[in-house]
Write a protein that binds this DNA or RNA. Structure first.
Length: 504
DNA sequence: CACTGCGGGCGGA
DNA sequence: TCCGCCCGCAGTG
């Protein structure tokens, strides 16, 4: 274990688990012995102390879309979570993923964003508000005191992660750079098939603009995210799909780069997708994704968290932290503990193994029951928006008392055609295996416990889990169960599917 | 143009 | 009083 990891672990425990201070205390601890490693996705009632030298802390950054909130305390910066923007139609992207956009922080920009439609099904976009703090948005407090930046979070995010800002920015820049080299060559290829597709009433798809235009290019990528139930004329098969994506992201987005956010829901088996490999062959029905993936590039605004589980295996998943148990509602990322290293990873893995993911009876691989250690807080969300996702909703879902949850699950939800994927190490690890897993077993009835949320863990302390993750650490949430569950991982594992910010 | 931070002000608990 | 929230303003990139 790297020294860094060790350093990180202890502080986390000390501050995260046993904080002896509160953001509102008149006097903060002086000269803390340890500084926590910056947590990009703090979740739960956690507290951290960052070094005043930590840039991200200085900027009060967070993976969550946090907006400034006036708390009438000049010395304490308060921010509240905006939630996540999803497709109101709850359409499932190929691969069963859902769009999870980062809400614009600016009210004006957010309104503008809301006017956009889902690139996949053209349904309206819906903002899932955060209600993780007693029905109110999760709040984060920041206070600079001496050489330390005190951070305190209140509430448990009850929604999927939006794309993190840092990731978005990183991806955009990377894409732009790569665009130049990748673009031209692909131009022709992309046009042919896609050109025919006219999904966008506005004509985005019908008209394939010069690839030089990044935005346009992004739009094209939209086609790659066809809803399973929809016809996919333009990408009938994967044969053509060469792994452009690999090329695309290859150098820029190393699969394992820290990527805080991506959550990948893997309702269906991942296509065998090889990021690194240039022409992989894919027989998967979803191969189109690959193809699409190839063209995916740039849209940073859209995040298909679930995107493609590519290379899940490549991660040597065993080692990755599959934190099925983790976090509150299952949306939270697993503890990816880059820093905690063996201890955590191992533990998590074991935990995972013990979980019935593969159990058909528990399609929602997230356990239905919260572990003892799980945070008691359960957001009671009676969101109005419901569901569109019912289309895919299995009967079992209906029983959910929490509409919101169900709806959200749709993310996990699977499209009708989802095949069940047994989640076992084997499946996740080797690409080949994954591919095999993808083989259609045929749609399975989706049974999702009413409270199909990820379970909260075995880890007794949310803080710990949160803290244990290093920033951007590789953490995975794998929701494999039958249909719906998702794998979310923080690593920059696979291609990140996003639509161009232009449209959204 | 969007993000960010600040602060006034309002209303509800 | 506290809190959530809206709004506008200003600085920044």
């Amino acid at each position: 274990m790297p020294a860094d990891a060790l350093q990180q672990a202890d502080p986390v425990c000390s501050y995260g688990m046993q904080p002896n201070w509160d953001i509102k205390d008149p006097q903060m601890p002086q000269e803390p012995a340890f500084f926590d490693h910056f947590q990009e996705w703090p979740d739960g009632y956690v507290r951290f102390i960052y070094s005043s030298d930590e840039r991200k802390a200085q900027r009060h950054l967070s993976g969550w879309a946090m907006r400034n909130t006036n708390n009438h305390h000049g010395h304490i910066l308060k921010k509240s979570c905006l939630g996540v923007v999803v497709c109101a139609g709850a359409c499932a992207l190929p691969g069963g993923s859902r769009l999870q956009l980062r809400p614009a922080i600016c009210d004006k920009a957010r309104l503008k964003q809301h006017k956009k439609s889902c690139p996949s099904c053209h349904s309206a976009l819906e903002l899932i508000p955060c209600r993780g703090h007693s029905g109110y948005p999760v709040t984060n407090f920041w206070q600079l005191d001496g050489n330390a930046i005190f951070f305190q979070a209140k509430g448990v995010h009850d929604h999927p992660r939006p794309e993190s800002k840092s990731e978005t920015e990183a991806r955009r820049s990377a894409i732009k750079r790569q665009m130049a080299s990748f673009y031209q060559p692909q131009k022709k290829r992309i046009r042919e098939p896609e050109a025919e597709e006219d999904q966008d009433s506005s004509g985005h798809f019908s008209h394939i603009p010069p690839l030089e235009n990044h935005e346009e290019f992004d739009i094209i990528t939209d086609t790659s995210f066809l809803v399973p139930g929809q016809p996919c004329p333009s990408f009938p098969n994967s044969g053509e799909a060469t792994c452009d994506l690999a090329t695309f992201q290859g150098d820029k987005m190393p699969p394992f780069q820290k990527s805080p956010n991506p959550r990948i829901y893997l309702p269906r088996p991942p296509c065998s997708y090889e990021l690194a490999g240039p022409g992989y062959t894919n027989s998967s029905p979803y191969s189109t994704l690959h193809k699409d993936a190839t063209s995916i590039p740039a849209d940073t605004d859209w995040v298909h968290l679930n995107a493609l589980p590519y290379n899940v295996s490549s991660h040597s998943s065993y080692e990755k932290t599959f934190d099925f148990t983790s976090r509150q509602h299952g949306w939270t990322p697993a503890l990816g503990i880059s820093g905690l290293g063996e201890r955590t990873d191992h533990g998590q893995f074991q935990a995972v193994a013990s979980l019935p993911y593969y159990n058909p009876e528990l399609p929602c691989r997230y356990l239905t029951t919260a572990p003892p250690g799980a945070p008691a807080l359960q957001t009671v969300i009676t969101t109005t928006s419901q569901v569109s996702c019912q289309a895919y909703q299995p009967p079992a879902l209906k029983h959910s008392d929490n509409v919101q949850e169900v709806k959200r699950l749709s993310g996990c939800n699977c499209a009708p055609g989802d095949t069940q994927m047994s989640v076992c190490p084997e499946a996740l690890s080797p690409p080949a295996t994954v591919t095999r897993a993808a083989s259609p077993l045929g749609p399975l009835p989706l049974k999702i416990p009413g409270d199909c949320r990820a379970i909260r863990p075995t880890w007794a302390f949310p803080q710990e889990s949160a803290s244990s993750r290093t920033d951007g650490a590789e953490s995975w949430d794998v929701c494999l169960s039958g249909l719906g569950r998702a794998i979310s991982y923080s690593d920059r594992v696979g291609p990140i599917f996003s639509y161009n910010g232009e449209d959204f």
